[in-house]
Simulated assay, not measured.
Amino acid sequence: MPEPTHHPVSTPPSPWMRPLRQRAPGLVLTLVLALAAAWLAQQPWVARWGLSALTLAIVGGIVLGNTVYPALQTRCGMGVDYAKQRLLRLGIILFGLRITLQQMGQVGWSGVLIDVIMLTSTFGLAVWLGRWLRIDGQTAILIGAGSSICGAAAVLATEPVLQARGDKVAVAVATVMVFGTLGMFGYPLLHPWLASLGAGDAAYGVYVGSTVHEVAQVVGAGRAVSETAADHAVITKMIRVMLLAPFLLALSWAVARRGVRVGARAPVVAPITASGPTADASARSRITIPWFALGFVLVALLNSLPLLPAAPRAMLLALDNLLLAMAMGALGLSTHASAIRRAGSRPLALAALLFVWLVLGGGLVNALLGHWGR
């Protein structure tokens, strides 16, 4: 009898390999965008404008998203969404490696108080002015977060709590870029006048760190005066960054209290639901905990202890820059220019009014609490 023929049986891909293959094209695309933005941000002619890799990544993403990406979206969509959601949260957690509790002591409690006052006043003003300008609540909150805390990174961190659409996030990031860049070049021009009021380089640095949008822009505005100004500016800015976590927790609580309905896509963190007598009461008591914000705090606490060697920390910081740039690139790919045009001039007007408050109101708060001329 002839021996039976055995045909090779193809092994189906494992459960974890299938989503990896589906996400790979989009992840590679966002990775290329992030690396290109990082390289461009290091070029001297770009660095002079204080444009970070995050800002350049979203700009590049928007350009591709409105030209060649629609033809690739079917294949790359899953990976782009993964970068926009999961990689973003990991990037925010690692962002805690940029600050330590020891930095707070270098500017004193007056510097911390100035940061708290500027954050709460700027964000509260954004919400109030947003209603006056008839801007939708999510856009006003995103612009307020970016203006009051740490620019594009704060906008990105606020998006999961609100589950806002990509075009609203892109509008908020654009306003941060415009007025943050204006501040980076404008603040050094104010330094001679501030010095005549008794604000030394250290006080000027606290003023810059408590009012300028992006970290890169803070560095530029500080170094334009002196290294002392730059050091105090960066430390004050990092304290503002540390306030991001309690801000997100408070925002999540406020959203739940008002019964705001989230977007159609699935929540990225598990909701805590308290039972109530009615469906409306249950909706108002549902709080979405931004776990990545708690991770951010834990990483900052870990960074405050002499446990992490310099080399691994530097590698993690580089990874964080890459993850955040990939998330920004993914956001840009998902943003249509028509949606930004539909937003109109009102978001820009809101950001302009907040910028005026940061410059004038921030100067007054710093003068009162920063001991200028004493």
Rank of each mutant, 00 (worst) to 15 (best):
L182A: 10
A233Y: 05
R257N: 04
L348H: 05
G151M: 02
A36N: 02
G186L: 12
G259R: 07
M242Q: 08
S275Q: 14
L360P: 04
A199N: 00
P267L: 13
L197Q: 11
A367K: 07
H6M: 08
T236E: 04
A71Y: 07
P290N: 06
P8M: 06
Q42H: 12
S210K: 01
L40R: 01
R240L: 02
A126N: 09
S121H: 03
L35D: 00
S304I: 11
P160V: 12
R48P: 00
G183V: 07
S147D: 08
L88C: 07
S304T: 10
S338I: 08
V219E: 02
A351W: 04
E159N: 15
K84L: 09
Q102V: 07
L35I: 11
L305F: 09
T228C: 00
A352P: 03
L27K: 11
V116Y: 11
L54D: 01
G344H: 06
V28L: 15
I99R: 00
G263M: 13
L333Y: 06
D81W: 08
L27V: 13
S275C: 02
I99G: 11
G205R: 09
G124M: 08
T228L: 03
V365C: 01
E3H: 11
A330Y: 08
G198Y: 06
R261E: 15
A24C: 12
P2E: 09
